[in-house]
Structures are given as C-alpha cells and as structure tokens.
C-alpha cells in the first residue's frame, strides 16, 4: 500500500566510511515529493556513495535514511518496487535488444502490463527497439537506462550522473527526457558534476564537497546568496568613461583591451553608471553584463573548480 509522506527521501546524519576514509561525513537532507533534487559536486565528493545508500545499493555506516517513509536498511524489499534506479556507468546485456531488455526488467518487477512502447516513446528509442544493446551509442544506452529505471512506474527515480561521458548533443537529448519526468511530477534524485544540468533541471541543489553538504537551496537562491557581484564590462570610445565611473565610487579596472570591468552589487548600479556616462557624454562601443552561475558559487564555497576533481585529492565516489 502506498503511503503519502511529505518527504520522499529523508536523510539524517548519514555517514559512510571505507576503512579510515570518510566518504560521506554526517550529512542530512530531505527531498520533497515531486521535486527534482540534484547533488552537485566534483568527482570523489561522495555523490554516488550517498545516492547508492539512498537507492539501497550500499549500506550506510551510520545515520538514518528513509525512502517513502521506509528504512533503507530494514525495508529494502518494500522500497525497491517503488523506486527506479539508473546506476552510475549503467550497462546491460550486450546481445539483448532494447525491447527485450525492457521486457526483462518489467518481468523482474512482475509487471504484466508495463507500458514498454510508451516508455520507448518517452526516451525516443522506439526505432531502436530491435537493436542489440552493444550496438547502441552512449546516449542511446543512457536513454535505455532511464527507460528501464521507469519501467515499474516508480514514485522516486534515482539518476546517478545520467549524462557523464556523453557528447553535448546526447546530453541535451537526455535532458529533454529528464524535463519530461519533471513535467510528470516525478520525484527525481539526480547526481551530476555539470552545473548547467543542475541549474536547468533541479528544484533544489545540494553542493557536496569532500563528503559534506556545504550549501543547499534552489539554484536561483544559491546564486543569489552566494555569487559575487555582477561584472559590467564597458568598451568605451575614450578614457573619459574610466574617470566617470571612478568618481562614482566604484573600482573600475582597465584591462589589456582597454575595456573597463566594474564589479557591481545590484542591477540598479548598472543603470546609474550608464546614466552617468550618458550625462558626461562618454560614448560606448559596446557593453555586457556577466551573471554569476553555480560554477562560480561552487568555486566561492569550496575554492575548487567544479569539473577539476577534488583538488587532485583522492576521493571515493
């Protein structure tokens, strides 16, 4: 019997050790029903370890993890039919076709009426139904993995790095599928080290570094509360513009291309600068404003670049 709970996933003081190595260090978070929750972090940060504990592949060292109100340690058999999982580095039987693979997994869930055609439509694989797994491209394999994760019409879907290793086109194809899931109102737990993926898909992003959650909020709120100022870049006709901005109390920096970079706190400041330049008769050839993104948020919070790994430190996924 399905029980309605406010949080699809509840994690409290979760810890995972491999010998002396702390992979997940006392983290707590909740995932609401129907939201897309993204774990964002570099390789080795502890994303996969966490998601694999929550989706019942691994056992925690300590802490409480509940999925749909059930304890992952004690009630795995009841949890499994209600979740769908795309594990990291998903693979399937080489010589089994797309349709046969879908049928196989639907039989493992003892489903007589699984909507295999509908799922193949959803992930745009219908024309590959008779293709063997080994002959599919990386993107198609991932899409099949997502379709398999949905074969039991799960209430919670876990997708562990669904687009890693895919080319930009294949990545976008997978994103389209995930946006479809979001529209359907599925609860999705996603791990990724692509900030644009988290920004595009997630309602809530948890930034994880070295086994700890260091920030958690909506992407917009994370950027709002953590990002540095906006950067206004001016390409002036003459040097008068520099003086005008300087006199307004900002700290303009002239770069090698004779462009002026100005850090501003609010969009209102941009308007004030532009008005002042107009009043002083300082003409501009062009200008642009750079908005901060999650990459910059991550850099600010951790001191590490998001896609460079954990500062070369050996980590456990």
């Amino acid at each position: 019997m399905t029980t309605e709970v406010e949080h699809a996933i509840e994690v409290e003081n979760l810890k995972k050790l491999y010998g002396n190595l702390v992979a997940v260090d006392d983290i707590s978070f909740n995932v609401r029903q129907g939201e897309v929750f993204a774990f964002l972090g570099p390789n080795g940060a502890g994303k996969t370890t966490t998601v694999e504990i929550v989706d019942t592949i691994r056992r925690p060292t300590s802490g409480k993890v509940r999925v749909l109100g059930m304890d992952v340690r004690k009630e795995k058999r009841d949890i499994v039919p209600r979740i769908g999982v795309l594990p990291q580095g998903f693979s399937s039987f080489d010589r089994i076709t797309v349709r046969e693979t879908m049928q196989y997994y639907s039989r493992l869930f003892c489903l007589r009426n699984a909507d295999i055609d509908g799922l193949m439509d959803l992930v745009n694989l219908k024309d590959k139904a008779k293709e063997q797994y080994m002959k599919l491209s990386g993107g198609l394999k991932q899409r099949l993995g997502i379709a398999i994760a949905l074969v039991n019409n799960p209430e919670v879907v876990f997708l562990d790095e669904p687009t890693t290793g895919l080319d930009p086109r294949a990545r976008r194809e997978v994103w389209e599928v995930l946006l479809g899931l979001k529209k359907e109102g599925k609860t999705v737990f996603l791990t990724t080290h692509y900030m644009e993926e988290a920004e595009l898909l997630a309602d809530t992003v948890a930034i994880i570094s070295r086994g700890k959650i260091i920030a958690m909020d909506s992407p917009a709120q994370l950027i709002e509360s953590n990002a540095d100022n906006l950067v206004l870049t001016l390409h002036p006709v003459d040097e008068k513009a520099f003086e005008v901005v300087w006199k307004m109390g900002f700290e303009p920096v002239l770069n090698n291309h004779k462009n002026i970079n100005v850090r501003v706190e609010r969009t209102d400041d941009i308007r004030k600068i532009l008005n002042a330049l107009k009043d002083a008769g300082a003409s501009l050839l062009s200008m642009d404003v750079r908005k901060p993104n999650l990459e910059q948020v991550f850099l600010k919070l951790t001191g590490e670049a998001l896609n460079d790994g954990a500062s070369g430190e050996k980590g456990v996924e």
Binding site: D55, T56, I57, R77, V80, P81, I83, V85, P87, F90, S91, S92, F93, Y105, L108, F109, C110, I148
Partner: peptide, 9 residues
C-alpha cells in the same frame, strides 16, 4: 549489471 539488478525485486 549486478548493481542494477540489486535495485530490482
């Protein structure tokens, strides 16, 4: 594949 199977019944 075993890891995936472990998330099925």
């Amino acid at each position: 594949i075993i890891r995936k199977l472990s998330t099925t019944p």
